[in-house]
Design a protein around this nucleic acid. Structure first.
Length: 418
RNA sequence: GGAGAGGUCGCAUAGUGGCCGAGUGCGCUCGCUUGGAAAGCGAGUAGUCCGCAAGGGCUCGAGGGUUCGACUCCCUCCCUCUCCGCCA
């Protein structure tokens, strides 16, 4: 959610940001509602002030044993008027804040303006040739995983449906090895605290980080309770500090969590239907940071470096893409995608999105910090990024490290986990 | 699942219709004191909204109701705890 004050004082700047994100929402409605709201508040509060004074008088009269009937009678009409104004105010508030909730976060000034064609490749790492292939043509992860018996999409389909996978043998062990490798790296070398949240959360929690109300059809919802399967660990881990007031010295707070992620992928039928690229349940190690506003962009760079380190240690070729304004997600002010090259599929696969949300999420879930004992609380900045998503990393491992005989050379850093 | 108890300012508590936005203790911050500390003493210690400001409004789990007036009475919901049952 955006800051109303900022919006009121600097509407042109916000408008530019919203246009850059292709938001069609008009600000003027919101500004008008804001105006009405403030006038209404002033009128209501001056009446309430009167009422409070009168109540003191009534109370004094009663205590001294005098009759307060006349005063009480007067107050009846005043109270009725206040009730009316309160109702009106609540209506305006509801309309204003529901509109405000649909305004996206404007992009940071360092973000290129435009659609996906303006995305900037800011870094490339590694070589694009399969490392252990001498003569054979590179195969895709779809072929490799099935022929090795590491993954069965048939069993997944039998148990649940299309887009669900069944990992077996070395496939299952590789998954576990990757999770442990990433958690160890981020906790031991990058200073993150490991947490393990619930995989099912309430509607309020889903709303806090912005998945609801807009994306409800992409989420799995339970039948008997108003609960949802998490689409990413970002949801529970960010919401864990909802309504907290942190101390400045505690920042940045850095958390890492492994969770499965559940996505309906509604509307993406026919896209990547085979293999590991787009599935309804996948494992992910997620990084979440709470930072001071003045260094949140430095924290974004180090978050990105932490995620990149995973790919570097695995030896996977990747590139870093700075997303253009039109390609940014609703809540992000700036975002880097990490994409792994898959020489069999001849495609780049996104394995991580590292974003700074500035105070957009923090305002919504009320996470603040204080610079001193008596200082006024300020909103923190929140950031997160995958560190990294597993199935597409497995695509990278399969396709980059395949050998002529159809087996896979396991990256050295994973060997002790297998 | 059944039965009961309860949610107040970081923690523990007081408060049952009107000088209670809220007392006390602990904790914490600053100061005095000290060679330094402890103890002691003093001051401070929720958030939010409107307002240039002065100031004012709102918040005692959440929402609604009764009332001139609600921490206090009524209703609904949420959460926590205890006991029983079931159970990895």
């Amino acid at each position: 959610m955006l800051d109303l004050k900022l919006l009121r004082e600097n509407p042109e700047k916000i408008k530019e940001g919203l246009r850059a994100k292709n938001s069609t929402l008009e600000l003027d409605d919101i500004l008008r509602l804001d105006e009405t709201r403030r006038t209404l508040i002033q009128e209501t509060e001056s009446l309430k002030s009167l009422r409070n004074k009168a109540n003191e008088e009534i109370s004094a009269l009663k205590r001294s044993g005098q009759s307060a009937d006349a005063k009480v009678g007067e107050m009846k009409t005043l109270s009725a008027r206040i009730a009316e104004l309160d109702t009106q105010g609540a209506k305006v508030d509801e309309e204003l804040f529901s509109k405000l909730h649909y305004l996206p976060n404007p992009p940071h000034e360092s973000v290129p303006r435009g659609g996906p064609s303006e995305n900037k490749i800011v870094k490339e790492w590694g070589t694009l040739e399969p490392k252990f292939l001498k003569s054979a043509q590179p195969r895709t992860h779809v072929e490799l995983s099935e022929s090795l018996g590491w993954i069965s999409s048939a069993k997944g389909a039998k148990l649940t449906g299309s887009g669900w996978l069944y990992y077996q043998g070395m496939g299952a062990r590789l998954e576990r090895a990757l999770i442990n490798f990433m958690l160890d790296l981020h906790t031991r070398e990058h200073g993150y605290e490991e947490v393990s949240p619930p995989f099912i959360v309430s509607r309020q929690t889903m709303t806090g980080t912005g998945q609801l109300p807009k994306m409800e059809e992409d989420m799995y919802r339970l039948r008997d309770e108003d609960f949802f399967l998490i689409p990413t660990a970002e949801v529970p881990v960010t919401n864990a500090l909802r309504d907290a007031v942190l101390k400045a010295e505690e920042l940045p707070k850095k958390f890492v969590a492994y969770t499965p992620c559940f996505r309906r992928e509604a509307g993406s039928y026919g896209k990547d239907t085979k293999g590991l690229a787009r599935i309804h349940q996948f494992d992910k190690v997620e990084l979440v940071k709470f930072a001071k506003p003045e260094n949140s962009y430095d924290e974004l760079e180090s978050l990105r470096a932490d995620a990149e380190r995973v790919l570097q240690l695995l030896g996977l070729p990747y590139r870093v893409v700075l997303l253009a304004s039109g390609d940014l997600s609703f809540a992000a002010a700036k975002c880097y995608d990490l994409e792994v090259w898959a020489p069999g599929s001849e495609k780049w696969f996104e394995v991580s999105s590292c974003s700074n949300f500035e105070d957009f999420q923090a305002r919504r879930i009320n996470v603040k910090f204080k610079r001193g004992h008596t200082a006024k609380p300020e909103l923190v900045h929140t950031l997160n990024g995958s560190g990294v998503a597993l199935p597409r990393t497995v695509i990278g491992i399969l396709e980059n490290f395949q050998k002529d005989d159809g087996t896979i050379q396991i990256p050295e850093v994973l060997q002790k986990y297998l």
